[in-house]
Design a protein around this nucleic acid. Structure first.
Lengths: 156, 156
DNA sequence: AATTTGGTTCTCTTTTTTGAGAACTAAAAA
DNA sequence: TTTTTAGTTCTCAAAAAAGAGAACCAAATT
């Protein structure tokens, strides 16, 4: 048995965060793995520790881990003289993740812009609202560095 | 035939925005309806106009429309002496929608806070990162009114 | 009273997603 | 060379999501 010991509370949090992550569009198994790597007291877990803690099959574990690595959501380290990989949360790169999510917002604004360009000239109010949404989205993304800088100064 | 006429470009945009909306976790039929109500030159469409333009069955149309109304994503108006409902995009309430998405962010921060409270005291770096993420999320949501006010002043 | 309108709801398929488990593989160890 | 380790990949089944179409229904019309 390789499963790691979690308190009831921790198990419950894995499910809660897992469901939350599923709602963000992540499939169940990867969502649980991400949650586990956020809640586990041990930060670096092997394939089998993950597999047995979450009661997943080998295939589900393998596919989920690879998917999470391809999308830069997890990472792994190795230890010399040990063939196993130790998977871990990429929490250290949260700034990059946030930048990425703002980048997604920009691409959303681009799509809305394309829609705006293809709207008829009448429907004036509608088009104005659409223009405002786009403008606001772009403003927010433009301000991200400022917001970040302010946060860093005021940080308690 | 009640279907409304869309140019090829408009049809293509309905699909593009539809897929985009699906990726946000919306099922296909509701995603297409939302997209249609964003792209259609006519702003208020009847049940049958939607159904025929998108080639949906009555059940799919009915379920999707009700789901979108329950989640405050669309709305309808009526015209006196006309039993039909005219469904429309709630673009006018985009500010509320944005507030809502920031509110979601706050609930995300609450969940992370709960996780932080259940982390062991060692894993210092990890916990610090988590603290920073939470702090930043809260800072952003707190600043929303300011950001909005700034945007309104600088608006071109 | 009978029919039409504007949907809603039920049943049943089809399709898609998810994951189990066995077979397999490459590198390392024995 | 044989075995073990640390996974990967393949095949298949179960389950969940999506949607078609018919039956149904209440209000309005004829």
């Amino acid at each position: 048995m390789e499963a790691i010991n979690l308190t009831e509370k921790q198990k419950q949090l894995v499910e809660k965060l897992g469901v939350n992550t599923e709602k963000e569009g992540m499939p169940p198994a990867p969502a649980r793995i991400m949650a586990l790597l956020m809640i586990s007291p041990e930060l670096e877990l092997t394939f089998d520790q993950i597999r047995e803690t979450l009661n997943l099959s080998k295939s589900a574990t393998s596919n989920a881990l690879n998917m999470l690595m391809n999308t830069d959501r997890i990472d792994y380290i190795t230890k010399s003289g040990d063939r196993k990989r130790y998977f871990k949360n990429r929490i250290g790169s949260w700034k990059e993740s946030i930048q990425q999510s703002f980048h997604k917002l920009e691409r959303g604004a681009d799509l809305l812009e394309e829609i705006l360009e293809n709207r008829p000239q009448h429907t004036v109010d509608f088009n104005e609202n659409l223009k405002d949404i786009i403008s606001f989205m772009r403003y927010v993304t433009k301000k991200l560095p400022t917001i970040y800088a302010e946060w860093q100064e005021n940080r308690e």
